[in-house]
Nucleic acid binder design. Structure first.
Length: 563
RNA sequence: CGGGGCGUGGCGCAACGGUGGCGCACGUGCUUUGGGAGCACGAGGAUGUGGGUUCGAAUCCCACCGCCCCGACCA
């Protein structure tokens, strides 16, 4: 491909709105262009990388017997109404009406379509297991896109779905995907850590996310460097030292003026924050006012709270709502909290003599004890893991790191197949719902992660497996010495006829521009043809990754380009 | 949705109440050709949109739209 007519342009300056290296470099080097917030065009270079990433994924999916197909982007809303997600999913699902006034949606995922297909396709246990996948555009109207390709609204995802007769079958399909994903990210050059994760809105029994460690990551991971334990903070349960065993002391109200925060309160009373209990008020999606009680030195984990309450989501309660329930914000107490559903963290339930609000402006209670002073409606693990907490496996202090989720695998179970009546006839002659799993990899996000992991101050450094072209030929001094163009043209042709298209910078630009661009674009090999190289007996080959360069005889360069 | 920031040639920026400029990129010519070349000439703008204030608005005020960052949110 000759750069003189290639659909791209490089930028000398960093785009002002790009902060992450991957965003900056992909825009500067002419791989992608932004159309709107979270909406990007892939220019030929970007599209080519994307296809190479897809090919790696395709090969590994095919290798485990997953069958490629394609499902639509536009769905009739009826399917989504049948599974209930038309109602449960919020504004992130784009909805519209067709000309006949029928509700339609833009696909944000494809469980519904798969389940409806299974209804038609699968009749007998003899057909199971089956696995399918496709690469398809998803649209999710995220409240906030960010980081270039890291979080976008429209993107291509490889999503696969496994269909099994029972849980044991699902376990096997899940394991196949786990192994395939490990190979995929290894081949793509994206180091990932599989972490146990929340099943979220997808429902289901088990899930892992494949995380790429990056400071810009939106997830917090809890990692143990000693034993390798890893989990998303949303679900991680770490060990915290047991509260001291004490005899319950008499409840005592104390005046604590101006201590609406835990830090103020602990300082005022001269006790550690871990001897206090704090109350957080939330309202669930189904309208319940809930107060969650955790220790003063810990934070409520929203995911855990949602799961404990068996709801779909929650929001902070307004002070008015708290007052309406008869409580005093800042001094609220689980003692006598009649107007709210009281959820207490397990650690609170095991602790004696904690300081808590007195439900009276400017007052707190000393020596509150669960069971004696109040009876919670629910006791559950509610807190977020903290750096230095004990690893749940080995007890060593855990560390917290940010990560970008590039892939996820879910054991869905029968939620969708039951809702849509996708059943098979078992060996026992009875109908059973098909057991599903679903598995996703964001292609564009994977591309961005590859760049995050493979770049230097000069530009992108593509791993050979995903590079848009294996090599980048640069001609220098072609107008001075006709042999330069002859040799460079011949190398370009030769690679092409060997089935390996390479980039060929035949532009009439200065050497500096061409070499700088070559490094910015990031092909694994840069082949420089110039009067100087010809005089030295061939062409200069630069390995982009190491910067190592050497003049090689043309025959050797030809062999390199042929592959 | 809350907080903050920014919208001026393709890109990066200046001008902050008085006729819109600079660098890079772009076109033409000459020179140059191994690390973002030089000289000369040139083209390219309803200053995001709509109101308002003013003799006069890119500049001040209001509203809206768009984009970025932090948070909320998020398979």
């Amino acid at each position: 491909m000759r750069l003189s007519h290639f659909f791209f342009t490089t930028l000398r300056d960093d785009p002002a709105d790009a902060e992450m290296p991957s965003h900056r470099l992909l825009v500067r080097a002419g791989y992608v262009r932004q159309l709107g917030s979270g909406i990007y065009s892939l220019l030929p270079l970007g599209y080519r990388v994307s296809r190479r990433v897809e090919q790696v994924i395709r090969e590994e999916m095919d290798a485990i017997g997953c069958q490629e197909m394609e499902m639509p982007v536009v769905h009739p809303a009826d399917l989504w109404k049948e599974t209930g997600r038309w109602y449960s999913v919020g504004a992130e699902m784009a909805r519209f009406k067709d000309r006949g006034g029928r509700d339609m949606v833009l696909a944000m995922t494809h469980e519904e379509v798969v389940a409806s297909l299974l209804r038609d396709v699968v009749k007998s246990y003899r057909q199971l297991p089956m696995m399918i996948y496709h690469f398809q555009t998803k649209f999710r109207d995220e409240p906030r896109s960010r980081g270039g390709l890291i979080r976008v609204r429209e993107f291509v995802m490889k999503d696969s779905y496994t269909c099994d007769a029972d849980e044991a079958g699902l376990d096997a399909s899940y394991d196949l995907h786990y192994a395939a994903y490990t190979r995929i990210f290894d081949r793509l050059g994206v180091p990932t850590i599989p972490v146990a994760s929340d099943v979220g809105m997808m429902g289901g029994s088990q899930a892992h996310e494949f995380m790429f460690l990056n400071p810009a990551g939106e997830d917090v991971l809890v990692l143990c460097e000693r034993c390798g334990f890893s989990a998303n903070r949303q679900v991680a349960r770490t060990r915290v030292s047991e509260p001291p065993a004490e005899e319950p002391l008499p409840l005592e109200e104390v005046e604590t003026p101006g201590t609406a925060t835990i830090a103020d309160l602990a300082a005022f009373l001269g006790v550690g924050a871990e001897r206090t209990a704090k109350a957080l008020f939330v309202v669930t999606d189904d309208g319940r006012l809930v107060t969650a009680i955790v220790r003063g030195d810990m934070d409520v984990n929203e995911t855990k709270l949602v799961n404990a309450l068996r709801t779909t989501g929650l929001r902070p309660a307004h002070p008015d709502e708290i007052k309406a329930a008869g409580m005093v914000p800042g001094y609220a107490s689980p003692v006598g909290a009649s107007g709210a559903f009281v959820v207490v963290d397990e650690l609170i339930a095991r602790s004696a003599n904690l300081v808590a609000g007195a439900n009276r402006e400017g007052y707190h209670l000393r020596n509150t004890n669960v069971g004696r002073d109040y009876t919670p409606d629910l006791v559950a693990d509610l807190t977020s893991a903290r750096e230095g907490d004990g690893c749940p496996e080995c007890g060593a202090p855990v560390v917290l790191r940010n990560g970008i989720e590039v892939g996820n695998i879910f054991k869905l179970g029968t939620r969708y197949t039951q809702a849509l009546g996708a059943t098979y006839l078992g060996e026992d002659g009875l109908e059973h719902p098909i057991v599903m799993g679903s598995y996703g990899i964001g292609v564009g996000r994977a591309v961005a992660c590859i760049v995050e992991a493979h770049h230097d101050e000069k530009g992108i450094v593509w791993p050979a497996e995903v590079a848009p072209y294996p090599a980048h030929i640069v001609s220098i001094g072609a107008t001075k010495d006709p042999r330069v163009a002859e040799v460079a043209d011949a190398l370009h042709e030769l690679a092409f006829s060997a089935g390996r298209e390479v980039l060929y910078d035949d532009r009439d630009e200065s050497p500096g521009v061409k070499l700088t661009d070559a490094e910015l674009l990031g092909m694994p090999l840069i082949v420089t043809v110039s009067p100087r190289s010809l005089a030295a007996g061939g062409a200069e080959v630069t390995v982009r990754e190491t910067g190592e360069r050497s003049v090689r005889p043309l025959a050797e360069v030809e062999a390199l380009l042929r592959g």
